[in-house]
Design a protein around this nucleic acid. Structure first.
Lengths: 344, 344
DNA sequence: TTGTAAGCGTTATCAT
DNA sequence: ATGATAACGCTTACAA
């Protein structure tokens, strides 16, 4: 009924608690016979070790914190759910558990957050969601305390310094390049672009991919490029500017899905049929992307896998394995749905 | 640099560790003077107590687990993010932390999950997302171990038995009733309805609200009511059935937003203008609801608040306060956007 | 290969 | 009002 302890197992298996500990932690020294006896005892007693006790005594807490920026209401944040799913799966596989914490970017006390993470929780690592993963203050606070950080789609250039943590990302340049080429393959030449948040490196990389793909011999008229902030609302004026031109583009490529949906919305209001008179594309493959009308052509990031890789990195690192790569780049894939078609 | 312990604080304040513990836990017996000295010492030392140590020694772990069903890819699950946000906020306010766990509904070992929650993590409570919150096996496993459960939008009737946990919900009947009336106020009489998952009590309650509002004197032709499962895909055939009728309804009310979006999608493909020739409404106010074309009229649940209330309940419960209410019903609100309008 | 004993940093039980 | 001291359940030296 009440929880079994290591002593109960030791007694049942007729060994010392140390032996139980050894067996359960997979340490080498233990005779197969003893090992079997201990395993058996643990199973029948329904024993699972106490995390608190392990953490208090050992050097690991078996806890990973996923830290997201609070106060973000845009649905761009939705991929966090998938990231979390991947992280949880990896945690389970490694006997770890995932804590979720939010930080308000505005009036936030990164010092207190760090203290909580390090002293109270003693987490074995932290997964940072953008734009937290690019906050130099938070990053250095964590680095000073020796916390393993994994940054999701990191922007801030760490100049190869490992102390700033490890990162997972896709090749944003290639993703945008390929999407632009997809549009061009369909016959589009007048392709508008809505930029992402200027402080986010992914934004610049995506714009570069667009520019390089489109350039291909001729200069790009600046009227085709409009500013955005990665949010739905920020793309509304950009879409209006693009679609209000006398010679309006036959396609618009937004730097992410939230903004592409804004384009869809503006086109809808202006009575411009998509993809009949306008093709629209984004990047991210948000859950909503397949549900809007028409379903959005976009680039899919393996977000679940990225979350799992992030957690795995921390787990391996804590277990002593030293992965010395500073960033892992994942494969993306073009998802062609109905929002893109050859121009009329 | 390295973490301060209660001993460091005791030494700095020139008291015993017990006194430090007392002061920090707000226990009554402590002279104001001593209290001030301890607080001061704790502040300057940047001391935060170790969760592991507290959990190991005391009766609380300061941990709450949010358990979601895994393998759910429908965007209906998106409100979990908001629920989580609320729960985290409440946790922070109470010195708690939120763990997230997933369970695969298919091949899931609820016993192992329970053991992890109870023995390994020793969580102070569990928040259960539908349809987990209605799984009798899991529920009784947790109840047997004395785990505080909070069920989100619970379905399974617990006949007022407190051991099955507490619940948070909205008044689904009223929500559907009001939405139907909104449609009727606009002049609609031929209002189609897409049902929710048959095993989910909210589905039945919403249907009842719809029926009662619409009935109002005359019987409801069964052709107006089509089956659905709360998912986008499940509502596609239902929408087609409704819109394929010679005398098609002038409005469709889907039991949730995911399905309402499916209606939008089918109408789009059939060339039926919304809201010109068809009004569409849902329930939930998913993040995507405001982004689709046209923006969806729906019912908003205070999901963030519900998450916070769930966590708060567990925290208060663990702290000894006995809230003996079995369910808290939150206010919903009609969100009228552009997908509903008077019939032509 | 196995066992003993000493922490880990708290809370809780007694005294004082 | 305050302080020793014993748990709590484990890992980690250090022996045997």
């Amino acid at each position: 009924m009440s929880k079994a302890t290591i002593y109960d197992v030791a007694r049942a298996a007729n060994v010392s608690i140390k032996t139980v500990s050894r067996v359960l932690n997979g340490e080498p020294k233990a005779s197969p016979e003893t090992r079997a006896r201990v395993m058996e005892a643990a199973r029948t007693l329904n024993y699972t070790p106490s995390l608190s006790a392990r953490a208090l005594s050992g050097s690991r807490s078996f806890l990973i914190a996923l830290v997201s920026p609070g106060g973000v209401s845009d649905n761009a944040m939705l991929y966090v759910t998938e990231l979390q799913l991947g992280a949880i799966q990896a945690c389970r596989a490694g006997g770890y558990h995932l804590l979720t914490e939010y930080v308000d970017l505005g009036a936030s006390d990164f010092g207190a957050l760090t203290e909580t993470l390090v002293s109270t929780l003693r987490v074995d690592g932290v997964i940072l969601i953008p734009p937290l993963c690019d906050n130099p203050q938070l990053l250095s606070l964590l680095a000073d305390r020796g916390v393993n950080c994994v940054r999701i789609s990191p922007t801030l250039d760490t100049h190869g310094d490992e102390k700033w943590g490890w990162g997972v990302d896709i090749d944003n340049y290639q993703a945008a390049f390929q999407m632009t080429r997809h549009l061009m393959d369909q016959g589009h030449r007048d392709i508008g672009f809505i930029q992402g948040h200027p402080l986010h490196a992914a934004a610049a990389q995506r714009e570069a991919g667009y520019r390089d793909a489109l350039f291909d011999g001729g200069a790009i008229p600046e009227r085709l490029i409009q500013p955005g902030m990665f949010t739905f609302d920020s793309a509304l004026p950009a879409a209006r500017a693009l679609l209000g031109q006398k010679q309006r583009p036959t396609a618009i490529f937004a730097a992410n899905d939230s903004m592409a949906m804004a384009v869809l919305s503006v086109a809808y209001r202006m009575g411009i049929p998509v993809p009949g008179a306008l093709s629209v594309a984004g990047i991210d493959d948000l859950p909503a992307a397949s549900v809007v009308c028409p379903p959005l052509t976009t680039v899919r990031q393996p977000v679940v896998e990225m979350g799992a890789a992030a957690a795995r990195f921390i787990i391996n690192r804590t277990a002593g394995q030293v992965g010395n790569y500073l960033k892992q780049v994942f494969d993306h894939s073009l998802v062609v749905r109905e929002s893109t078609a050859p121009p009329a």
